[in-house]
Amino acid sequence: MSILRIYARLAVASLRAKMQYKLDFLVNTLLWGALTTADFLMLAAIMLRFERVGGWDIYEVGLLYGMAWIATGLYRTFASELHNFDQYVVHGEFDALLVRPWPTLLTLLGRNLEPHRLGAVLQGAIILGLSARHLLAVGTLDRFGLVYVLASSFFGALIPFSLSLITAAFAFWVVRTGDLLTFTIHAPISASQYPLTIYPRWLKTLLLSVLPVGFINFIPVQYLLGKGGGPWALVFSPAVAVGFTLAAYGLWRAGERRYQSTGS
């Protein structure tokens, strides 16, 4: 409990620091909004023209898209320091985290929140809402399904978070990890906005194992919409998210020990 209290104190402090730069916040909100809108525009262009992708209609894909963006937006909001973590190792700033009597990950995450990225969560939620309304009306999705989808979007944030934590932990070995992010976060998240069935087998396997973004949305939604899978999908997805997070944290701890034994 005290861990949460400390995190909250740090998080509030980081927001107060942010508020000194109101123009930055405004412009960043607008630019990040433009980027997510642009991203949606590409999907909309394809879906409006062709109506179906791999047997999924625009509302069904909208569900996937909304969930992926809620999860990603939450991760980017709360774990932005993790996203660029290699800088801490490059400049030896990790030292400052080690001299505090709390887990390094806690103090790291508390250093910087990026509320301007909540716009992505909002956009994801709107698209998810519109899609779900239609799917409820035509009876493809039931009320339980809707609740599950909402809960899963938030739970799903654990998956990009863990992927990012793993990438950050790599920095303890290879120092610079900026290039790796494309593989571990950007590309998998882009891929998760469409039904995984459209991808070549090797890519699909990858997205359900090493880079398990399929469990953010595709696996449970596939079952909820009656497109395959079984009820196990509903239990399995959050279990994967939690298990993967624990494994990622284990790697982080190992990396931390390595940092301490090799120095910067």
Binding site: I46, R49, G54, Y199
Partner: peptide, 29 residues
Amino acid sequence: SHMVNNAASAIFGFIYIAVWQAAARNAGA
């Protein structure tokens, strides 16, 4: 290290190609 970027570009390419294959399978635009 640029070869790593290349591999990432290729992956993105494969994702987009798969999306288009799935969308325009029956009738293209």
